[in-house]
Write a protein that binds this DNA or RNA. Structure first.
Lengths: 152, 152
DNA sequence: GCAATATCCGACTGGTTCAGTCCGCGTTTA
DNA sequence: TAAACGCGGACTGAACCAGTCGGATATTGC
């Protein structure tokens, strides 16, 4: 449970790959898929979703492909996941669902909603750029999580 | 995506209910299920899992049922979720899986593993007791998440 | 213009997981 | 002894995920 779908994984990998190859004008879905050994057609659909969400710019035709629409530092992991898997909620019933109004049961939801926001905040603080800096050099992400642990 | 299973939800609700009724020696699965309007047989299985995990104490026979095996403050949401849904990982391939060793693809995993730990840390910091204090009175959880947002 | 290379998009399938149910067994107490 | 309760395996239907197929459209190079 609580795991990313493979699609979201692939999406993050693809964006990271694009961030690592800024010199090329555009990379095709097949290029990226081959680099990681993932199904090309599946990745293609994912990249289409990311394009529709405005995270990528696409270009059809020969030598076409995809490129980041913003700087890698300006794209958060949260945006990627959200674009692919849709809005996520830890609570199984979102506000407005009937199942919870009938039974005044879910007093649990309030604290969990706060957890949800916390997780979203963490994901928003991590950029594609952070993913490319696989080594320790005190990126945003690492500092943040260290601080979090100190405060808990 | 990234949502708790209903089972985990039910488990948290049940523990919260038990924490709110410390005077009674034991509550049956049916009692709790009726209180929240959830399927009794399903809840029963969940409570059994929590018992096996050591979070609850069970007592068979008439007037039997379940009771917390520790103080509500000493039981974390993480333990409950872990007991019901098993260990969770954000990354789709855990360490040791073959699919990732073949392709040296997953340089993404390291940062995501850190996110995973962060989330686990947040869940560990929330106790059943915190769930019962639905109002604001500056419980652990709230303070923690406020600090997190400041640091990010 | 034509063919190759791309993105784009809907439909489909097989597999897995989740939610929930059924049923029989062991245990405790009145 | 019978009722109330926990225990645990097996099963079903529904939903979702991963991946594939097929075709339409756009762009480029020759």
């Amino acid at each position: 449970m609580l795991k990313l779908t493979k699609k979201a994984d692939y999406g993050l990998m693809a964006l990271k790959y694009l961030a690592e190859h800024p010199e090329t004008a555009a990379l095709s879905a097949k290029d990226i898929a081959d680099a990681y050994g993932i199904p090309a057609q599946l990745l293609a659909k994912i990249l289409q979703q990311l394009t529709k969400a405005g995270l990528l710019r696409s270009h059809a035709g020969m030598n076409g492909g995809y490129a980041l629409s913003r700087e890698a530092r300006e794209i958060s992991a949260y945006e990627v996941i959200h674009a692919i898997d849709g809005p996520f909620f830890i609570t199984s019933c979102t506000k407005g669902s009937k199942s919870c109004e009938l039974t005044p049961s879910c007093t649990i939801k309030e604290p969990l909603a706060r957890v949800n926001e916390t997780i979203a905040g963490v994901l928003k603080s991590i950029s594609i750029q952070d993913l490319t800096e696989q080594e320790h050099p005190a990126g945003h992400a690492q500092e943040a999580s260290r601080l979090i642990f100190l405060t808990l």
